[in-house]
Design a protein around this nucleic acid. Structure first.
Lengths: 347, 347
DNA sequence: GTGAAAGCGCTAACAC
DNA sequence: GTGTTAGCGCTTTCAC
């Protein structure tokens, strides 16, 4: 069942090892035999068995992709297909396959990673999230298993190759966008505070405010997982304050859309009453109304770079830990405007 | 490098074959040795090498997932993470791993599938799309390789196990929703006409109109990939007609959002001037404004069923071809309303 | 109930 | 340049 290397060898009148060498395009095989062998492979319809190869080789030509637990379906989802595209492009080019592991809980995710590593299923792993105190990272470090992180590690930062944006500066810039438009009361809406990306973006926000001499107010920060029921309330409260914000920095475009809706339910209009800026530049950010002023973090590129780094690392165990910063870009759209225009629609 | 079955055997004072039998939980191994072996495995930190097992076994405990080419990033994306969740849940439960293959072009996708099959990487494949004249399906059929289709095959329908919604009836129902609200001029906006799902939904739309004695007008159908530049124009034209539609059936929620934006750019408001209904009930459909009246097709469930069917088929090559229809549900939200309310906002 | 040995399909010394 | 051979780690007859 299935053509093996032996069949090809026989047909081409060479030894199996020669066929193997032809497959690997070994330099010191004569062009003539190469041709003959290749012809035989074609004719017989030969395809190598990757398992056998992996066994002999201790290399799988496969990369593992690990997402964070998909329990909170909302937030990171649109991110995933795009980063996958980026990874897939280089994987395909370099003839790597992709394994994927996810799970509803952290525990499931961890188990998945163990399976990949212990089972010799993959040569390396791309982690698509970074959270404090993550046992997956500790496990991989301990096993000295090649991996790359998309995002910023919160520990061992110089031991972990990672691909990230400069989220702090991105956040400073996007917050300044509001400040430059004259906003002085700017609130921050974030997600899971365990995620490093949330932390960085919040820090940038605070730094920008401080630099501009604006107060950093605690009642201007929301961190509930507010795409669920709690969030609606939290946003409502924010605008019940004596001095409600006129600008909002939101950690993700998808959240922004939810917030816009909540606001409009309360008769608050974007950008006429409040300006919104956010992050990620998802596809949807352009086609929603208002279109979103956001930071394009180049998701595809993040995936692309991560895959490249990982493959380098796989091919050379001694490759030093790297840090790749993918540039970001501000995208100005309709959701933010100069504070002096506030109330435009009601006037 | 790595604990093998032999190490365990030595430690437990048995033969390697016995260890193997313990792993497989073979019945005629004494409980005593089982315990002893298991203890040794624990102590040594043994983990089976899946490649070796696959080689000996001709089974990989892995499923392949094939998406359609990701070139058109817009349409099917939000679908993917959700269906993956569904697949992943059962894969995890039954100890299967997931292998994923995508590509920018059809050709790349096809190559990926070949790699999975020929390389013995997976035991079976889940196809996440159905399009006419697809060489991937033909390839799998020809090789008699286990696979399951999410969607409806356009050929060999009784030979292919597939998991689908009843898209024709779903479309009839959602179109009737508009008809029952008094709409008589109802247009259809679809995507790629090669996709079976587009065809089914269009047919349902037409059948509903006919049943209601409403004309099926050709100038009421748009099929450009209109999330790109062409679409804006097409929608514009639609509302330049002498009798512009008052209702729109749109093949996907994400498209709906784009259309709402285009309409509002032209001063046409949803649902006050035109009602919109669509399909899929993506997460975003609920938080956008207006929230979308749509058909919940239970994406998670589609994935779940597909994975189950595939594993059955893998375990029993003679499993007959099945057809699983996942029920759908109408979700009424703000984007559609009775035609008599039209113009409400301008009055 | 358990062991010995062959073999899954391939690669990688080591020969010549 | 190419053939021979010994594994990679596991499963699976076939003995006993």
């Amino acid at each position: 069942m299935g053509i093996t290397i032996k069949d090809v060898a026989k047909a081409a009148n060479v030894a199996p090892s020669t066929v193997s060498r032809v497959i690997a395009d070994h330099p010191r095989i004569s062009l003539d035999t190469k041709k003959r062998v290749r012809k035989a492979m074609k004719e017989l319809g030969y395809h190598p068995n990757v398992n056998a190869r992996s066994l002999a080789n201790r290399s799988t030509q496969a990369l593992g992709i690990v997402m964070k637990s998909s329990a909170d379906k909302a937030l990171q989802n649109p991110f995933f297909p795009e980063v996958l595209r980026g990874i897939s492009a280089v994987a395909h080019e370099l003839d790597y396959s992709l394994y994927i592991s996810t799970g509803e809980t952290e525990e499931e995710v961890y188990e998945g990673v163990q399976r990949m590593v212990y089972g010799n299923r993959v040569d390396g792993i791309i982690l698509l999230y970074s959270r404090v105190d993550d046992n997956v990272i500790n496990f991989l470090l301990e096993k000295d298993f090649p991996f790359v992180l998309v995002g910023k590690p919160c520990e061992h930062i110089d031991r972990i190759t990672h691909v990230d944006n400069d989220n702090v500066n991105a956040s400073i810039d996007i917050t300044n966008e509001l400040i430059n438009q004259g906003h002085e009361r700017i609130a921050f809406i974030g997600g899971d505070t365990d995620l490093v990306v949330t932390q960085d973006r919040m820090r940038g926000y605070e730094m920008a405010l401080e630099k501009a001499g604006l107060p950093v107010r605690e009642d201007y920060q929301i961190h509930k997982e507010f795409l669920k029921s709690g969030g609606r309330e939290a946003v409502h409260q924010l605008f019940q304050l004596e001095e409600p914000p006129t600008g909002l920095v939101i950690v993700d475009d998808l959240m922004s859309i939810g917030v816009v809706t909540m606001l409009e339910e309360n008769g608050i209009s974007v950008p006429d009453d409040v300006s919104i800026v956010s992050f990620n530049n998802l596809y949807i950010s352009e086609i929603t109304r208002p279109s979103l002023t956001t930071v394009d973090i180049q998701i595809y590129n993040l995936g692309n770079q991560a895959a490249k780094c990982l493959i380098e690392k796989v091919n050379n165990q001694d490759e030093p830990a790297k840090r790749i910063i993918v540039p970001y870009e501000l995208v100005r759209r309709q959701s933010s405007q100069h504070v002096s225009l506030n109330g435009a629609s009601t006037s």
